[in-house]
Computed example of a mutant assay.
Amino acid sequence: MLAEPQPLSIGVVRESAPGERRVALVPKLVERLVKRGLRVVVEPGAGAGALLADEAFEEAGAELGNAWGADIVLKVSPPDKFEITKLHFDTVLIGLLKPLSDVDGIAALERSRVTAFAMEAIPRITRAQAMDALSSQSSVAGYRAVLLAAERLTRFFPMLTTAAGTVPPAKVLVLGAGVAELQALATAKRLGARTTGYDVRPEVAEQVRSVGAHWLDLGIEAVGEGGYARELTEEERAEQQRRLTAAITKFDVVITTALVPGRRAPTLVTAEAVRGMPAGGVIVDLAGESGGNCELTEPGAEIVAHEVTICSPLNLAGEMPGHASELYARNVTELIELLVDGAGRLSLDFTDPIVSGACVAGRARKDS
């Protein structure tokens, strides 16, 4: 008599990267996958950093065991060299794998014949919005960046009227208008600061205003034919930087997150701008992993230069592991459900732009 086929297994491993407290799946999403007939195996202690006990995973239908031996292994941070050796031939790996910066790691996965899907490589299309881990984790980082700035600033964020006089609100400038930046603007506004946003794309001014912030207009237009943005000339770029530097000196807090995938982050905050900021001011530079947007940034460190505190945390989302894990787990679950058919079997359709776009290593991708 033929044995019944085993259900597809999903492995949730414990993160080993320093300071990484997130977990790739949470109990409420375990329940969702188990209802689909999938087997979820959780490495003991995988959720400890996010204060999720092993018992919570078991109550949701998971089992504790060797998660590295599962058919699909879930991670947050990229696996290190030792962890890659734990992955079986033809394992499917899903995680934030840094495909553009961790070239050696992707090559090691390729050599191990692992099929790897990078959450940050999922195409930015409407159908993939629920899988957009970059946006979900950026939202957390933008929120945390403001709290970090408020803690380091030597003044109040909100305006206060007291018997001793009126304290004016802190002035906060956020450079960029992406998910992290808009969340930062909204959070700073809730804390009572006077908020201002800036982006090289003038068409996002309304998004900045939609969260109650002012728009920083440097007076340089980059609109070309048909309303499309045109490339600035060298002279215009120099003038833009000069005007931005002058503007930065008027703010108590500057938050910046500009990243260019696979390249060094652009310098937006010059040493001259730092020198001109008020004493006790704060810069939170979220682009430290790519060198930073501030000329004086030391990635991963907190320094004081010209009486201004410059913070460059490398994993702010990992500092709020509860909600960060929940959001990431939803992104991952949506991808898993795309990769698994109605019968609970792995079905990698590389004609699907989401599947092909997110796959950064694997024989199936090459052979398609």
Score class of each variant (00 low, 15 high):
Q6A: 15
I10G: 12
V13Q: 08
E20N: 08
R22Q: 08
V23W: 01
L25V: 10
P27C: 13
R39I: 08
G45L: 03
G47Q: 03
A50C: 04
A60V: 06
A60Q: 07
N66P: 01
A67L: 02
W68M: 03
L93S: 05
I94W: 02
L96W: 08
P99T: 08
P99Q: 01
S101Q: 11
G105W: 00
A108Y: 08
A108L: 12
S112M: 13
F117S: 09
A118H: 05
A118D: 07
I122M: 08
I125R: 02
A128K: 07
Q129S: 15
S139Y: 13
V140H: 00
A145K: 04
A149M: 14
R155T: 14
P158S: 08
L160V: 02
A170M: 07
L173N: 07
G176H: 09
G192R: 03
T195H: 12
D199A: 09
V200L: 09
V200F: 10
R201W: 11
V204C: 02
Q207D: 14
V208T: 06
L216R: 01
L216P: 01
G227P: 00
A229D: 11
E231V: 14
R237E: 15
A238T: 11
Q240L: 13
R243Y: 06
K250M: 12
T256R: 03
T257M: 04
L259F: 07
P266A: 08
T267Y: 06
A273Y: 03
A273M: 05
R275N: 04
V282W: 08
E295V: 10
E295R: 03
G300C: 01
A301Y: 06
V304S: 10
A305G: 04
N315Y: 02
L316T: 00
E319P: 05
G322S: 13
H323S: 15
R330H: 13
R330M: 12
T333S: 14
V340S: 11
F350W: 06
D352V: 09
P353F: 00
P353T: 02
A358W: 00
R365A: 15
